[in-house]
Amino acid sequence: MQTAPLHQRGQLLLGVVRGQIRLFSGLWAAWIDDADGVYRNFRKDLPPGGDWTFFARSLQAATVYE
């Protein structure tokens, strides 16, 4: 069994990573778009302009958002 040269394997891995970043950023953006509803469901006000807590929550939520 012969493996692909190192530079080809690196390119393949880079493509996979880029795909994952694209997927995650799409999920992150979707959660942020829906954040007003999330906050409303918990009877909380969406922070105007966001804050670090909102930023952290959005990153965490994007990891499980569908």
Rank of each mutant, 00 (worst) to 15 (best):
G10Q: 12
Q20S: 06
G37I: 05
A61K: 02
G15E: 09
S25R: 10
Y65V: 05
V38N: 08
R9C: 00
R40S: 15
K44G: 04
G49R: 02
L12G: 00
D34A: 15
L23M: 10
Q11P: 00
N41T: 09
T63C: 07
D34R: 11
L12V: 07
R40V: 07
P48F: 06
G26R: 08
P47G: 02
R43C: 13
A35H: 03
G49P: 01
Q8N: 00
R57I: 05
G50Y: 03
R57S: 06
D45K: 11
L13F: 09
F42R: 15
R9E: 10
K44Q: 15
G10T: 04
G49E: 04
V64S: 09
R43W: 13
V16P: 01
E66F: 13
I32V: 15
W28T: 01
R57Y: 05
D45P: 03
T3K: 14
Q60N: 03
Y65F: 15
L46W: 04
L59T: 02
S25P: 02
D36R: 14
D51W: 05
D45R: 07
V16R: 14
I32H: 03
A4F: 10
Q2F: 13
L13Q: 03
G19R: 06
W31T: 01
P48D: 08
Q2Y: 12
L27H: 07
L6Y: 11
A30R: 07
V64F: 11
P48W: 03
T3Q: 13
V17S: 03
W31E: 01
Q20F: 05
L27W: 06
L46F: 07
L27Y: 03
